[in-house]
Nucleic acid binder design. Structure first.
Lengths: 195, 195
DNA sequence: TGGGTCAGATAACAGTGTAAACTTTACGGT
DNA sequence: ACCGTAAAGTTTACACTGTTATCTGACCCA
């Protein structure tokens, strides 16, 4: 490969990795095919990423930031609405992000924990930031954080089962989307659990 | 390998596959290590299973039957309870099955759709049977089937995020379990959506 | 002119799923 | 008792995978 000052190569690796991830899926993302596509040898990638997991972690980070950008935008657009309408928009945006960026969603939330072993704890910040946006729409109280997780989990359940193709095709995505969103909305109105 | 009449070998393959799946996890389940453990060559396995996916499909089937057995037992035990109590027990049993048989749960509901491509459509029956048990606890109506899916999805969301280790450890499993179950129960009491 | 440093390449190790061709074993019929 | 056949299992090979240790070549600076 012609030398180009390092950071350009790193960028090329990530660009191609994104492309493969979206076009062919995670399974096709191999260090060798990646190197072949950008015109370098596999070992060159190891100059910029400690290993394949580190590369994936970078993609996870990207995904988390994309998601945060989208959710933050929704919050801005619904600043004048009530918290129910805001949650409806937020849940809808999360759902759509998952299905429109399936391969990103997969590495972000579905990839085997083995690949997360070396995921630096610091980086979870960008992930947590996203979830807090859900919790913040809920009435204050000691159970607010866990209720935020619950909303997220339920949305994730539908999305991940759709992505994993475990739901009978006779159920339409729109139908499932609507139901998942309304369940999230219901938790905004619900009285917080006292304890 | 000493010859033993075929079906014994098939049984040995499945037994060892189960063991590896539960002890070392899906990632460690390789045709070669499997063959090594039962004392045959990798190609012998191909006499009994078309390929690795076919072997996994068999394990998925096993898991589906295990799950069905457990849920059916719960239904028997709660035959005299009301539908709310029955759903509480059902959801709890599903949740516990997922976390007590993580590796089974993974291949059943979380494994990449690529591995499902060749999963014979007929076999989905055993999967559907499980989900219908949820729907049957709901009030009758046109939206009953999809509401059953919704209950299942929400439960799956929490379980799969726990298995994938994407939930902050400060949230206890019991807390998340309770919340997930109560959300399922809430759908039994809810008025069905009229349309 | 000589070092040193950094980007990248070579070659190799250990592993993966899978297919074609080959060998061994067991059994049923003459 | 023998032999042919079919089943059961093995050998060998292909085309992949992630990863490492070692080596090469280019550039900058003293």
């Amino acid at each position: 490969m012609t030398r180009n000052g390092g950071s350009q190569t790193r960028a090329a690796i990530l660009k191609e990795a994104r492309r493969v991830l979206l076009d062919q899926g995670y399974t096709s993302l191999s260090m060798r095919s990646l190197a072949g596509a950008i015109g370098c040898t596999p070992t060159t990638i190891y100059l910029y990423f400690k290993n394949k997991d580190a590369l994936i972690h970078t993609l996870i980070d990207e995904g988390m930031n994309m998601l945060h950008g989208k959710l933050a935008q929704v919050l801005e657009e619904t600043a004048d609405s009530d918290s129910i309408e805001r949650m409806r928009a937020l849940a809808g945006a999360y759902f759509d992000f998952g299905l429109e960026n399936q391969e990103y969603y997969e590495v972000m939330f579905m990839l085997h924990p083995q690949h997360m072993d070396r995921y630096p704890a610091v980086k979870y910040r960008s992930a947590r930031r996203n979830l807090e946006l859900f919790a913040e729409q809920l009435p204050e109280g000691p159970s607010r954080p866990v209720a935020g997780i619950q909303i997220w989990s339920a949305l994730h359940g539908t999305i991940s089962l759709l992505i994993a193709q475990r739901i009978d095709k006779k159920f339409s995505r729109d139908e499932l989307r609507e139901l998942a969103i309304e369940q999230a909305v219901a938790m905004v109105a619900a009285r917080p659990i006292e304890n």
